[in-house]
């Protein structure tokens, strides 16, 4: 009788440990992937001064674009809340679009090797941001499903550290295609 009881308790403890650790691992993965998005957004903001320097060499009098870009970057650096972050992100995107629109008028700029390299870096960063968000959403889905599923839901109801995470959704600003002319 006692042995049976011991075995049952041991099995429960073992299962508890396994599922608790699984939840912790998922939770950390979700948080890490969120941080990865920020890293990539920062990378994009850091590319802006470089692209401005190159463009200035060929198109010095396009002052509007430069101030627009530096405003967008400043917004990104000052952003505190996720909401501000999303707004700043949208304005960086449209700032970049306006830079590339300007570049269309300067064939020498478009042929510049530095400019081409930066263009590749920027489109790569766009991809990285998108992939980082995709990875975050995939992990959130897995995490949320695990929390609600048997038997992990028992553990998540005992410990209140396991809460549903929110999916990343593109803001209205990001969904809308910015009108470059209007903003200049």
């Amino acid at each position: 009788m006692i042995t049976t009881l011991t075995v049952i308790i041991a099995v429960i403890l073992l299962a508890y440990t396994i599922f608790y650790n699984k939840l912790i691992r998922l939770k950390n993965q979700v948080e890490n992937s969120w941080a990865q998005i920020d890293v990539q957004l920062k990378r994009r903001a850091d590319l802006l001064p470089a692209i401005v320097t190159v463009v200035k060499k060929y198109a010095e009098h396009e002052k509007d674009v430069f101030s627009y870009v530096s405003n967008a970057r400043q917004k990104m650096l000052n952003a505190q809340t996720p909401q501000e972050n999303a707004t700043a992100d949208a304005s960086i995107q449209s700032a970049l679009k306006s830079v590339f629109a300007v570049a269309e008028d300067y064939p020498e700029l478009k042929a510049d090797k530095n400019f081409q390299q930066l263009q590749e870096e920027i489109s790569s960063t766009e991809n990285r941001v998108a992939y980082a968000r995709q990875n975050y959403n995939d992990l959130v889905m897995k995490y949320n499903t695990t929390i609600e599923s048997i038997p992990s839901n028992i553990i998540s109801s005992i410990h209140n550290i396991f809460e549903q995470k929110e999916f990343f959704e593109a803001t209205e600003e990001e969904k809308a295609v910015p009108d470059v002319k209007e903003q200049l």
Binding site: S33, E120, E121, S124, N127, R128, Y131, A132, N135, L139
Partner: peptide
């Protein structure tokens, strides 16, 4: 470009 693509995909794969 090759380096960039590898980096992008590793981000996607986590």
């Amino acid at each position: 470009q090759l380096h960039n693509v590898v980096e992008e995909i590793s981000i996607s794969a986590g």
